[in-house]
């Protein structure tokens, strides 16, 4: 028994020490550094151009999935992000961008996306893609989306992730925010993202 403990105790101790030694950053959201993959995608921009992550490196990025017909979560989240960015010092506001990725490409054409994102400020850019492109990105971000039954007018609901993924200017995953967090928390974490950039 003593021999067993003499083997097991150091292993458990090493595991405990390893789990405690974390390079802490005081995020208000959830730390996803080293947990989630870097920013990487091939999509279609609101200008109708094929784009990938390279187009958006160099700025702190907040990525969010949704659709323009969304009644509550998407406009609420985008408004919250716009307000959080407005609370930053003016000279730093252009160092942040919000990528709103529509998972409803059949309704959200580039023109429609552009009209929608313009409403929330210059930092917000709309993206969408083919089913394959969207599935690949959503899967990479460990999320999902799906479509409800269409009503007699052809309207349907879209279920989607409500997470906001924060990346630094190099496209490295940093923080996962919730759309219902206080705006001051969002601003706080965007400032940390800028520092990490």
């Amino acid at each position: 028994m003593i021999r067993v403990i003499s083997w097991v105790a150091p292993i458990l101790l090493a595991l405990m020490v390893a789990s405690c030694s974390n390079n802490d950053v005081a995020w208000k959201g959830s730390d996803i550094r080293g947990v989630m993959p870097d920013l990487s995608f091939e999509l279609i921009s609101e200008s109708g151009l094929d784009v990938n992550q390279e187009t958006f490196l160099g700025k702190a990025t907040l990525m969010f999935f949704g659709f323009t017909n969304c009644p509550d979560i998407c406009p609420g989240t985008l408004q919250g992000l716009a307000s959080a960015i407005e609370a930053l010092p003016e000279e730093r506001q252009d160092e942040v961008q919000v990528l709103f990725v529509s998972v409803d490409p059949s309704r959200d054409t580039p023109d429609r996306l552009k009209a929608y994102t313009d409403f929330f400020g210059p930092q917000v850019t709309g993206l969408t893609g083919t089913d394959d492109q969207l599935s690949a990105l959503v899967k990479r971000m460990r999320a999902t989306y799906g479509y409800g039954e269409a009503d007699e007018n052809g309207n349907y609901a879209v279920s989607h992730s409500s997470a906001i993924y924060g990346f630094n200017a190099d496209g490295e995953a940093q923080v996962l925010l919730r759309g219902n967090q206080p705006i001051s928390d969002l601003t706080h974490d965007i400032q940390l993202l800028l520092q990490a950039s």
Partner: peptide, 12 residues
């Protein structure tokens, strides 16, 4: 387990 809210559920 709010991760399932954040990532989206397979059905409502």
């Amino acid at each position: 387990y709010d991760i399932y809210d954040l990532c989206g559920r397979a059905w409502p």
